[in-house]
């Protein structure tokens, strides 16, 4: 456990030491601030429903930018050699790297709490806290899944660019699945799309519904991709 925290701490501080970390945070905050300002309607009840809906899409390009260097960069520079010969298990390395990236994402999302705070201060009647809580739940769960996909991809390549693109497109695919017209598909196709569609689940969260099935879906997906990341890392010893 200590080794996981050690790796996570190094990963997190490394992201703040590099320009890319600050650029990612600045870009995300700039875009979410624009979304917040543009989705508020004077006279309408205070709600962050649109804000959360669009922010979930904003995570799509941001999460791969966080995860792309986790293992790919280590492999490219050779710094994975001291790491993989330290007395830490492969799963410990993966969890440490992932936790570091996850904490960075949390640091990136934390300043957006100012938007609901503002709404609570200035709007009358006050916004319903349920959908806001569910919205943050949704962002964190989606971000966790995206980072796990990125960690898995990063464990299989030494190119950050490749890691970014190979993470971005599956996420895009998962998000777009929800927009496919189900009527054009056979029953089994509709069932598959409903099962893996992120958009539909994010829609539920936006309405303030925290469904256990959705939490299980994102958690299981995250665990699955972290297992893939472990396999990717372990396979480096055989390649």
């Amino acid at each position: 456990m200590n080794a996981i925290l050690t790796i996570a701490r190094r990963e997190l501080s490394s992201m703040f030491r590099l320009p890319v970390g600050w650029v990612v945070i600045a870009l995300f905050l700039l875009l979410t601030a624009s979304v917040f300002a543009l989705t508020l309607t004077p006279g309408a009840p205070a709600s962050l429903r649109d804000f959360f809906g669009i922010s979930a899409w904003l995570l799509m390009p941001v999460a791969p930018a966080i995860s792309m260097r986790l293992l790919a960069e280590e492999h490219r520079t050779g710094s994975d050699e001291p790491l993989l010969t330290a007395p830490v298990s492969d799963i410990g390395i993966i969890l440490g790297k992932y936790l570091g990236a996850w904490l960075f994402m949390a640091c990136m999302l934390a300043p957006t709490l100012i938007y609901p705070t503002l709404l609570f201060i200035v709007s009358d009647p006050k916004p319903d806290p349920g959908p806001i809580l569910a919205g943050y739940c949704s962002l964190i769960l989606q971000g966790s899944l995206y980072l796990a996909i990125g960690t898995a991809v990063s464990s299989m390549t030494s190119s950050q660019t490749l890691a970014y693109l190979a993470t971005l497109f599956p996420i895009l695919g998962l998000l777009l699945l929800g927009t496919v017209s189900p009527e054009a598909l056979p029953d089994w196709g509709r069932a598959v799309i409903n099962a893996v569609s992120i958009s539909a689940r994010a829609g539920d969260f936006a309405r303030g519904i925290i469904d256990t099935a959705h939490i299980v879906f994102f958690s299981a997906g995250t665990a699955l991709f972290l297992m893939l990341a472990h396999t990717g890392l372990a396979s480096r010893r055989w390649r």
Binding site: T6, R10, S14, R17, G78, A86, P87
Partner: peptide, 19 residues
Amino acid sequence: PLYPEMRVIDFLDYRARLF
């Protein structure tokens, strides 16, 4: 191969924790 963005003392502390 080391981490260029880290300070020497921080890097040694990190490695000591790993071990």
